[in-house]
Protein backbone atom coordinates (compact mmCIF):
# COMPACT_ATOMS: atom_id res chain seq x y z
CA UNK A 1 0.00 0.00 0.00
CA UNK A 2 1.30 3.39 -0.86
CA UNK A 3 0.95 6.26 1.49
CA UNK A 4 1.69 9.76 0.33
CA UNK A 5 3.96 10.23 3.31
CA UNK A 6 6.01 7.06 3.77
CA UNK A 7 6.13 5.43 7.15
CA UNK A 8 9.91 5.74 7.22
CA UNK A 9 9.57 9.49 7.43
CA UNK A 10 7.57 9.21 10.60
CA UNK A 11 10.08 6.81 12.07
CA UNK A 12 12.94 9.17 11.34
CA UNK A 13 11.04 11.99 13.01
CA UNK A 14 10.29 9.87 16.06
CA UNK A 15 13.94 8.88 16.22
CA UNK A 16 15.01 12.52 16.19
CA UNK A 17 12.62 13.40 18.99
CA UNK A 18 13.69 10.36 20.99
CA UNK A 19 17.35 11.23 20.75
CA UNK A 20 16.66 14.87 21.64
CA UNK A 21 14.78 13.70 24.70
CA UNK A 22 17.57 11.36 25.73
CA UNK A 23 20.09 14.15 25.39
CA UNK A 24 17.88 16.33 27.51
CA UNK A 25 17.83 13.76 30.27
CA UNK A 26 21.56 13.39 30.24
CA UNK A 27 22.54 17.03 29.95
CA UNK A 28 20.09 19.16 31.87
CA UNK A 29 20.32 19.55 35.61
CA UNK A 30 16.92 20.87 36.53
CA UNK A 31 14.80 17.97 37.64
CA UNK A 32 11.66 19.33 36.02
CA UNK A 33 13.32 19.79 32.63
CA UNK A 34 14.77 16.29 32.88
CA UNK A 35 11.35 14.96 33.52
CA UNK A 36 9.89 16.85 30.59
CA UNK A 37 12.54 15.30 28.37
CA UNK A 38 11.46 11.86 29.52
CA UNK A 39 7.92 12.75 28.50
CA UNK A 40 9.18 13.74 25.09
CA UNK A 41 10.92 10.39 24.72
CA UNK A 42 7.67 8.61 25.51
CA UNK A 43 5.90 10.83 23.01
CA UNK A 44 8.41 9.91 20.32
CA UNK A 45 7.84 6.23 21.02
CA UNK A 46 4.08 6.83 20.73
CA UNK A 47 4.59 8.40 17.32
CA UNK A 48 6.51 5.35 16.16
CA UNK A 49 3.70 3.13 17.38
CA UNK A 50 0.98 5.02 15.55
CA UNK A 51 3.03 5.13 12.35
CA UNK A 52 3.55 1.38 12.48
CA UNK A 53 -0.12 0.85 13.28
CA UNK A 54 -1.04 2.54 10.06
CA UNK A 55 1.59 0.58 8.16
CA UNK A 56 0.15 -2.69 9.37
CA UNK A 57 -3.47 -1.46 9.39
CA UNK A 58 -3.78 -2.92 12.81
CA UNK A 59 -5.25 -1.19 15.84
CA UNK A 60 -2.83 -2.74 18.29
CA UNK A 61 -0.36 0.11 17.92
CA UNK A 62 -2.94 2.72 18.77
CA UNK A 63 -4.12 0.79 21.79
CA UNK A 64 -0.55 0.59 23.03
CA UNK A 65 -0.30 4.36 22.68
CA UNK A 66 -3.46 4.75 24.72
CA UNK A 67 -1.95 2.75 27.54
CA UNK A 68 1.41 4.51 27.35
CA UNK A 69 -0.35 7.83 27.76
CA UNK A 70 -2.16 6.60 30.84
CA UNK A 71 1.01 5.25 32.36
CA UNK A 72 2.82 8.48 31.57
CA UNK A 73 0.12 10.41 33.39
CA UNK A 74 0.50 8.23 36.48
CA UNK A 75 4.27 8.57 36.35
CA UNK A 76 4.08 12.32 36.03
CA UNK A 77 1.88 12.55 39.07
CA UNK A 78 4.23 10.52 41.23
CA UNK A 79 7.35 12.19 39.88
CA UNK A 80 6.11 15.69 40.44
CA UNK A 81 5.02 14.75 43.94
CA UNK A 82 8.56 13.55 44.60
CA UNK A 83 9.97 16.79 43.23
CA UNK A 84 7.63 18.84 45.38
CA UNK A 85 8.57 16.83 48.47
CA UNK A 86 12.27 17.36 47.80
CA UNK A 87 11.86 21.00 47.02
CA UNK A 88 10.19 21.58 50.35
CA UNK A 89 13.38 20.51 52.03
CA UNK A 90 15.96 22.15 49.88
CA UNK A 91 14.50 25.07 47.98
CA UNK A 92 16.22 23.99 44.81
CA UNK A 93 15.37 21.64 41.98
CA UNK A 94 18.92 21.18 40.88
CA UNK A 95 19.59 17.46 40.85
CA UNK A 96 23.30 18.05 40.98
CA UNK A 97 22.73 19.13 44.54
CA UNK A 98 21.62 15.58 45.29
CA UNK A 99 24.99 14.14 46.10
CA UNK A 100 24.71 13.21 49.71
CA UNK A 101 25.49 9.63 48.95
CA UNK A 102 28.90 9.23 47.44
CA UNK A 103 31.02 6.23 46.90
Amino acid sequence: MNFSVPTEAFIVLSMVLFVLGAMGVMLRKNAIIVFMSVEMMLNAANLAFVAFARQWMHLEGQVFVFFVMTVAAAEVAVGLALIVAIFRNRNSTNIDALHQMEG
Binding site: E39, N43, M69, T70
Partner: peptide
Protein backbone atom coordinates in the same frame (compact mmCIF):
# COMPACT_ATOMS: atom_id res chain seq x y z
CA UNK B 1 0.55 14.13 12.81
CA UNK B 2 -1.64 11.56 14.48
CA UNK B 3 -4.60 12.92 12.56
CA UNK B 4 -2.61 12.43 9.38
CA UNK B 5 -1.88 8.87 10.46
CA UNK B 6 -5.56 7.91 10.65
CA UNK B 7 -5.61 7.98 14.44
CA UNK B 8 -8.20 10.63 15.28
CA UNK B 9 -8.98 9.27 18.72
CA UNK B 10 -5.34 9.10 19.74
CA UNK B 11 -4.80 12.59 18.42
CA UNK B 12 -7.57 14.00 20.53
CA UNK B 13 -6.45 12.04 23.58
CA UNK B 14 -2.96 13.41 23.04
CA UNK B 15 -4.27 16.95 23.25
CA UNK B 16 -6.60 16.26 26.13
CA UNK B 17 -4.31 14.13 28.29
CA UNK B 18 -0.76 15.00 27.34
CA UNK B 19 -1.03 18.66 26.50
CA UNK B 20 -4.07 19.34 28.58
CA UNK B 21 -3.47 17.42 31.78
CA UNK B 22 0.15 16.41 32.09
CA UNK B 23 1.67 19.66 30.92
CA UNK B 24 -0.78 21.68 32.94
CA UNK B 25 0.31 19.68 35.97
CA UNK B 26 3.90 20.52 35.10
CA UNK B 27 3.08 24.20 34.89
CA UNK B 28 1.26 24.11 38.19
CA UNK B 29 4.25 22.52 39.88
Amino acid sequence: LYLMLEAPFIGMVQIAVYAGAIMVLFLFV
